[in-house]
Write a protein that binds this DNA or RNA. Structure first.
Length: 1080
RNA sequence: GCCCGGAUGGUGGAAUGGUAGACACGCAAGACUUAAAAUCUUGUAAUCAUCGCGAUUGUGCGGGUUCAAGUCCCGCUCCGGGUACCA
C-alpha cells in the first residue's frame, strides 16, 4: 500500500468533523490554553501560500498543547467589514454582503484542506449583527465613560456628572479635548444641551472637529495608521488634511498604561519598540514666552496723541489691521480707560444688567475684532450698544452700520439702545435685552480668538521642549503655520508676506511636504522675550513645526537641534553653542552629552544635570511646568462609508444620544447605491427611514479596526446574547496565551485592541489588563518570480545562462509552469497564444528560467495557491514544507523547489509501517539504538515547539526516520510514540498510522510522550584533539573517562608527537565531553 | 536621519564560546528499468595536490578578548523591515 495522501486526508478530515474532534468547552479540571491567529480579511483573491504560514505554526502549537494535557481554545473567524468589498460594490453594484459571503466560503474551503484544528463552532464574522451588536455596545460604553487621570482608569459618566453638580471641575483631572474649569453653579445654570456639549469634551468616545486624513478618492477619512507616506494604505490614493466633525476614541488617555503594559507581556523587543515609538512619550517642559511689547500706535505715529472718544470707539476706521490684533495692548488700554470713564447712560445700564441680574453674564468694553463693544454676552455672541450724542450724526450712523455688518460677519448680533431709552426706563431696556438673549441660541462655550476680555491683555505663548537646558541658546521661535498664535503675532508690515506663505503651505499636500524637505519660513515681525535672560528673539513661521504636536510652537536652539540648525543657516539667524567643545560650524550637536557653557546658572553642569536643574528653575520661577507629551493621537472613528458597523447614535436637537442597549444591534440598512448622496452625505444618507424613535441616526459607519478590537473575547463565548463574554467564560479562558500574526498590525490593531481591552478591564467586563500575553510575528512569504528571455523582435526564447549573448527582453512567466527553474515548454506554448509557435535556445536540453524575489502578486505571475500544493503533495507535505522553509519569524521567498524532500520524508515514514501492501509493524522489544533515536526526537520536538523553531524539528524528524530506516526498525514501541510526536505537524498521516497501530480514538487525545535522559546517554565520547585551536584528529574515550586520563592518553598518543613538531607544550585544556586543545 | 533585524556552500538553512556547513534542494556518478518516472546507494565549501595521502583558506569588511569566535566586544560596509521635520 502506497502513501495515498489524498484518500487519507479526505478520510480524516471527515472523521474530525463527524466526531467534533476540535470542539472545546470550558473544563475547569484541565488547564486552559488559548492560541489565536489574527483573523483574515476575506479578499476576493483567496488564500495564497503565504497566508497559512502563521496558521500552520499556531496549529502545531495548539495540537502540541492539547497532547500535553491542556484544554486548548483555537478559534477562527473573519474580519469581514472592509474597503475592498465596498469598492467592488461601487464598481459592480454587487452587495458587499454577497461578495463577502462568497469570499468567506472560498477561504473556508481552502482552510479546510489544510487540516487545521480550529473549533469552527466558535466562528465569528464582524459583519454579522449578532457580532457587531457588541461592537456597538462597547461604543455606547465608551460614549458613557470618561477617563480619570488621577485613578488612571475609565469611570462611568454619571459619577462625573454628580461631581460637576456638587463642585464643578474642582478636584477633578479628566482626560479631555480642551482644558475647562467651571463651578457647580456654572454647571447647574447650563441648559441640557450646553451640558451635553461640555460632557462631549470628556467622553472616551466623543464627537469633535479635528484635522483628519481625508482621502477624496475613497470618499472617507482614514486613521493615522491607515495612511502610509501620505497615501492611503488601501489603494494608494492621495490623502489631504481637512477639518471635519468626527467620532473619536480617546486612546491618548491610555498612553501611559499602553506603554507600561508592554513591560508585562512577552512580545518581541522590536515590536514593543515599534509601539513605544508610536506612543512616543517624551519628557520635557512647557515654557511660557511673553511677546516683546509693540510700539504703541502713538509711537508709530498712526494716531493723534489725544484721540477723541469718537475715534476710539471705531478704531477699525483708522487701525489698518486690527483683525490681526497687533494693536491689542493699545486697545486693551483704551478699553480699560473707557471702563473707568463710562458715560452716564452706560453706567446706568451696567448697574441694571451686571452680575447676572438678567440671568446672563454680560461683559463691558470688550474688544471684538478691533472694536470695543459697549456690552457683550459671549455665550450667545450678542453685542449691546449704547448710542450717545455722537451716534446721531449721519457719518457716524454710516460707520455704525458698517461696524454692525462686520460684526455680523463674525457671527455677532448687535442690538442698540439710545441714551434716551436708558434714561427713560432702564429696567425696561434690561428686560428687552433678556428677552432678546432668551430667543438667541447659544453659539459657543469658549472664548473666540477674535475677542478678548478683561485681564487677558498680556500676549504670550507656550512651547514644549525636551531640552529646557538649552534655553540660553534660543535664538528664535517658530510657530506652525496652522498655529492659533499666528494671527496674534503678525505685524502689519509682515502681514502680506505671512499670508503668501500660509497660502502656499495650505496648498501643499502632506505628501508634497514630505517629498521635498526644503527649508521654508517667514518672519512674523514680532519678538518674544527669552524668560531666562530677557533677550529679544524673533518669531518665525515654518512648516517644519507641526501644529498637532506639543503646542504647535517651539523655541529654536540651532546649535543643538539639526532642524533648527538648517533653518538658522538658511535665514542667517544666530547660533549660540551651549556645550563645551561642540563644533557647530558645520552641523548642530544634538547629543545629550557634554558640559554646559554660555548658559548662566547652568554653566559647568552636564547636560543631564542641566535638564534637571532647568526644569526646577522653570517650575520655581513660574515660567512653565514640567510636562510629559505623547505622540499617540486619539483614533478617528468615523468613516464615510457603507460597509461597516452603524453607530448606535441618533441626533436630537443636533446633539448625539445613544440608542437604548435593548434595541441593539442597529442593523446596517439597505441602500440603492453604495455612493455618497447628491448632497455629499455618506451612503447611509440613502437609507430609507434611517431613524430611531423618529430621530435621525448617525450616517457615518465605524472603521475597520472597530470589529477586530475585541474579537478574541467573543470567541470565548460566541453565542452569548446577553453579554460580549460572560464573566465565567472570561474567567476560565482569560486572555490569549499565544497570538500569531503579521508585523503590519504593530501600530494599528495591536494598539487599538490593547486600548479596547484596557477599557473593558476598567469596566470590569474582562479580568486581564492585557489581551495578548505572548505574540509571535510570522515572517512574510515573498514571491519568487521566474523569467524567460525573449530575443528582441523575434519569437525566440533563450535559456538563462545563454541570455547575455543575445539582446533580450525579460518576461515574467507563470511560476506554476516552471519546476526547479526549468520551464515546461509545452505548458508555456499553451499559456499564451502569442507564444504557441515560440522557439527555444536550450542549455543541456533544458530551458532554464531566471528568478527574482518580489512581492507575491498576480501581475508578477508568482502567486502559488495552497490548493495546488495540497492537490499535488497533500496537506501534510504543505504544512511541513512551510515550516521547513526557515525560521518562522523570518521573511523568505516561497520556493517550491525543496518540497520534494519533505514529501519523500513522509513516504519514508510510511515505509516503516508498510512494505508493499503488508503492514509490518511488530511488537518486538526495541534496541538501545532505536530508543535513543526515539527519545532524541521527543526531546528535540518538545524543545523546538516551545521555542517556535519548527524548521529544526522537521530536520530532526528526517534524521530520526533516516536512522530508523537504516536500523530497519518497524517496532510499535518506537513507531507509536513517534506518530504522536509527529501529529502536530502532519496530523493526517499521523492519524492514519495511529489507527493502523490499532488505536480507535483520535491521536489528538493521546499523550505527548515523555523523554527519558537514560536512553540518550552516550557510551563513548569522541574527542577532537586540536593543536593551537586547529583540530588534527579525534580519539574515542568511554563516556566516564576522567579529564586527567584523557589528557594523559592524548599526550601519549603517537599522533600528538607528530603535530607538536618537537615543540614544548605550554598548556593542555580538556573540556570534558567536548574537546582537547594543546597549546604550544 | 533614528530604531529594529540580517549577512554562513550553487540554493533554503543548521550550529548552549568547543570538529562550521546538520537537514533538505539542486547537481554528478551508480543500482533497478527496454526506457522514463519513482526508489535506493555514493559524492558534493573553495583552492592546491604526487585528485583514495593530505595541506591551506573559509561564516560581509577591519580590529580586539579568549587555550578556542559564525557566536562575545569595538569600528565600518551592504541588504531587509519599521518610523519620521514629534521639538
Amino acid at each position: 500500500m502506497d502513501y495515498s495522501f489524498k484518500e487519507i486526508e479526505k478520510k480524516w478530515q471527515r472523521y474530525w468533523i463527524e466526531n467534533a474532534t476540535y470542539k472545546v468547552t470550558e473544563n475547569p479540571s484541565k488547564p486552559k490554553y488559548y492560541v489565536l491567529d489574527m483573523f483574515p480579511y476575506p479578499s476576493g483573491a483567496g488564500l495564497h501560500v503565504g497566508h497559512p504560514l502563521g496558521y500552520i505554526a499556531s496549529d502545531i502549537f495548539a495540537r502540541y498543547k492539547r497532547l500535553k494535557g491542556f484544554n486548548v481554545l483555537h478559534p477562527m473567524g473573519y474580519d469581514a467589514y472592509g474597503l475592498p468589498a465596498e469598492q467592488y460594490a461601487i464598481q459592480t453594484g454587487q452587495h458587499p454582503a454577497v461578495t463577502t459571503e462568497q469570499n468567506i466560503k472560498r477561504y473556508r474551503e481552502q482552510l479546510d484542506k489544510i487540516g487545521f484544528s480550529f473549533d469552527w463552532s466558535r466562528e465569528v464574522r464582524t459583519c454579522e449583527p449578532e457580532y457587531y451588536k457588541w461592537t456597538q455596545w462597547a461604543f455606547i460604553k465608551m460614549f458613557n465613560s470618561v477617563y480619570c487621570n488621577l485613578c488612571k482608569k475609565a469611570l462611568p459618566i454619571e459619577n462625573i456628572i454628580s461631581v460637576f453638580e456638587e463642585c464643578g471641575t474642582e478636584g477633578l483631572n479628566l482626560a479631555c479635548s480642551e482644558p475647562m474649569t467651571f463651578t457647580a453653579e456654572f454647571w447647574k445654570s447650563r441648559t441640557e444641551k450646553e451640558q451635553q456639549e461640555i460632557l462631549m469634551n470628556y467622553r472616551i468616545a466623543y464627537l469633535a472637529d479635528t484635522m483628519v486624513n481625508w482621502c477624496p478618492q475613497l470618499g472617507t477619512v482614514l486613521a493615522n495608521d491607515e495612511v502610509i507616506n501620505g497615501v492611503s494604505e488601501r489603494g494608494g490614493y492621495p490623502v489631504e488634511q481637512r477639518k471635519m466633525r468626527q467620532w473619536c476614541l480617546r486612546v491618548s488617555a491610555y498612553s501611559q498604561r499602553l506603554l507600561d503594559g508592554l513591560e508585562k507581556i512577552d512580545w518581541t523587543e522590536s515590536l514593543k519598540e515599534t509601539q513605544r515609538n508610536w506612543i512616543g512619550r517624551s519628557e520635557g517642559a512647557e515654557i511660557r514666552f511673553y511677546l516683546s511689547p509693540d510700539p504703541s500706535p502713538q509711537e508709530r505715529g498712526e494716531i493723534p496723541e489725544n484721540p477723541s472718544r469718537e475715534m476710539l470707539e471705531n478704531p477699525k476706521g483708522w487701525f489698518k489691521n486690527t483683525t490681526d490684533e497687533n494693536n491689542w495692548k493699545f486697545l486693551i488700554n483704551i478699553a480699560k480707560d473707557f471702563r473707568s470713564n463710562q458715560t452716564e447712560a452706560e453706567n446706568e445700564l451696567w448697574q441694571a444688567i451686571r452680575a447676572k441680574k438678567i440671568g446672563y453674564k454680560i461683559r463691558r468694553q470688550h474688544i471684538v475684532d478691533g472694536f470695543i463693544a459697549d456690552f457683550i454676552n459671549l455665550e450667545k455672541q450678542v453685542i449691546i450698544e449704547v448710542d450717545g450724542g455722537i451716534h446721531l450724526t449721519t457719518e457716524q450712523k454710516e460707520r455704525d452700520k458698517q461696524r454692525t455688518a462686520i460684526l455680523n460677519q463674525f457671527g455677532f448680533e448687535v442690538i442698540r439702545f439710545t441714551n434716551e431709552e436708558i434714561f427713560d426706563n432702564v429696567q425696561n431696556v434690561a428686560l428687552k435685552i433678556k428677552d432678546y438673549l432668551d430667543k438667541v441660541p447659544s453659539k459657543r462655550t469658549a472664548t473666540t480668538p477674535l475677542s478678548c476680555g478683561e485681564g487677558s491683555g498680556e500676549r504670550s505663548f507656550v512651547v514644549f521642549t525636551t531640552r529646557p537646558d538649552t534655553i540660553f541658546g534660543v535664538t528664535f521661535m517658530v510657530l506652525a503655520p496652522e498655529s492659533e498664535y499666528v494671527s496674534q503675532v503678525v505685524t502689519p508690515e509682515q502681514k502680506s508676506e505671512v499670508d503668501t506663505y500660509l497660502d502656499a503651505t495650505k496648498k501643499r499636500t502632506e505628501r508634497e511636504r514630505q517629498a521635498d524637505r526644503k527649508v521654508t519660513g517667514v518672519f512674523t515681525g514680532s519678538y518674544a522675550i527669552n524668560p531666562a535672560n530677557g533677550v529679544e528673539i524673533p518669531i518665525w513661521i515654518s512648516d517644519y513645526v507641526l501644529a498637532g504636536y506639543g503646542t504647535g510652537a517651539i523655541m529654536a536652539v540651532p546649535a543643538h537641534d539639526s532642524r533648527d540648525y538648517a533653518f538658522a543657516k538658511h535665514f542667517n539667524l544666530p547660533i549660540i553653542p551651549l556645550i563645551e567643545g561642540a563644533d557647530v560650524s558645520e552641523e548642530s550637536f544634538d547629543a545629550k552629552e557634554g558640559t554646559m557653557i554660555n548658559s548662566g546658572f547652568l554653566n559647568g553642569l552636564t547636560v543631564k544635570e542641566a535638564i534637571k536643574k532647568a526644569k526646577e528653575y522653570i517650575a520655581e520661577n513660574n515660567l512653565g511646568k514640567v510636562k510629559v507629551n505623547y505622540r499617540l493621537r486619539d483614533a478617528i472613528f468615523s468613516r464615510q462609508r457603507y460597509w461597516g458597523e452603524p453607530f448606535p447614535i441618533y441626533y436630537k436637537d443636533g446633539m448625539p444620544y445613544t440608542v437604548a442597549l435593548e434595541d441593539l444591534p442597529i442593523e446596517l440598512p439597505e441602500v440603492d447605491k453604495f455612493l455618497p448622496t447628491e448632497t455629499g452625505e455618506p451612503p447611509l444618507g440613502r437609507a430609507k427611514n434611517w431613524k430611531y424613535e423618529k430621530y435621525p441616526l448617525e450616517l457615518n459607519t465605524m472603521p475597520g479596526f472597530a470589529g477586530s478590537s475585541a474579537y478574541y473575547l467573543r470567541y470565548e463565548d460566541p453565542h452569548n446574547d446577553n453579554a460580549l463574554v460572560s464573566r465565567e467564560a472570561n474567567d476560565y479562558w482569560g486572555n490569549v496565551d499565544l497570538y500569531l500574526g503579521g508585523t503590519e498590525h504593530a501600530t494599528g490593531h495591536l494598539i487599538y485592541s490593547r486600548f479596547w481591552n484596557k477599557f473593558l478591564f476598567d469596566l470590569g467586563i474582562v479580568g486581564k489588563d492585557e489581551p495578548f500575553q505572548k505574540l509571535i510575528n510570522q515572517g512574510m512569504i515573498q514571491g519568487r518570480s521566474n523569467f524567460v528571455y525573449r530575443v528582441k523582435n523575434t519569437n525566440t526564447f533563450v535559456s538563462y545562462n545563454l541570455e547575455n549573448k543575445y539582446d533580450t527582453t525579460e518576461i515574467h512567466v507563470d511560476v506554476n509552469i516552471v519546476s526547479n527553474d526549468v520551464l515546461d515548454i509545452e505548458k508555456f506554448r499553451a499559456w499564451r497564444p502569442e507564444f504557441a509557435d515560440a522557439e527555444f535556445i536550450l542549455e543541456d536540453g533544458k530551458y532554464v528560467c531566471g528568478y527574482a524575489v518580489e512581492k507575491m502578486s498576480k501581475s508578477m505571475f508568482n502567486v502559488v495557491n495552497p490548493d495546488d500544493i495540497v492537490e499535488k503533495y497533500g496537506a501534510d507535505t504543505l504544512r511541513m514544507y512551510e515550516m521547513f522553509l526557515g525560521p518562522l519569524e523570518q521573511s523568505k521567498p516561497w520556493d517550491t523547489n525543496g518540497i520534494d524532500g519533505v514529501h519523500r520524508f513522509l513516504k519514508r515514514l510510511w515505509g516503516l509501517f508498510y512494505k508493499g501492501d503488508e503492514f509490518v509493524v511488530t511488537d518486538e522489544p526495541p534496541t538501545a539504538e532505536e530508543l535513543k533515536a526515539l527519545h532524541k526526537i521527543i526531546k528535540k520536538t518538545a524543545y523546538d515547539i516551545e521555542h517556535f523553531s519548527f524548521n529544526t524539528s522537521i530536520s530532526a524528524f528526517m534524521i530520526c526516520v533516516n536512522e530508523l530506516a537504516t536500523l530497519k526498525c518497524s517496532k510499535r514501541a518506537i513507531l507509536e510514540p513517534l506518530v504522536i510526536v509527529l501529529s502536530p505537524f502532519a496530523p493526517h498521516i499521523a492519524e492514519e498510522l495511529y489507527h493502523a497501530l490499532g488505536n480507535t480514538t483520535t491521536v489528538c487525545d493521546a499523550q505527548f510522550p515523555e523523554y527519558d535522559e537514560k536512553y540518550l546517554a552516550e557510551s563513548s565520547v569522541k574527542y577532537p584533539v586540536s593543536f593551537n585551536g586547529k583540530v588534527r584528529f579525534t580519539l574515542d574515550f568511554p563516556a566516564d573517562t576522567q579529564a586527567k586520563e584523557v589528557e594523559k592518553s592524548v599526550l601519549e598518543n603517537e599522533q600528538t608527537a607528530k603535530f607538536l613538531e618537537g615543540k614544548e607544550i605550554k598548556k593542555v585544556i580538556v573540556v570534558p565531553g567536548k574537546i582537547v586543545n594543546i597549546v604550544f
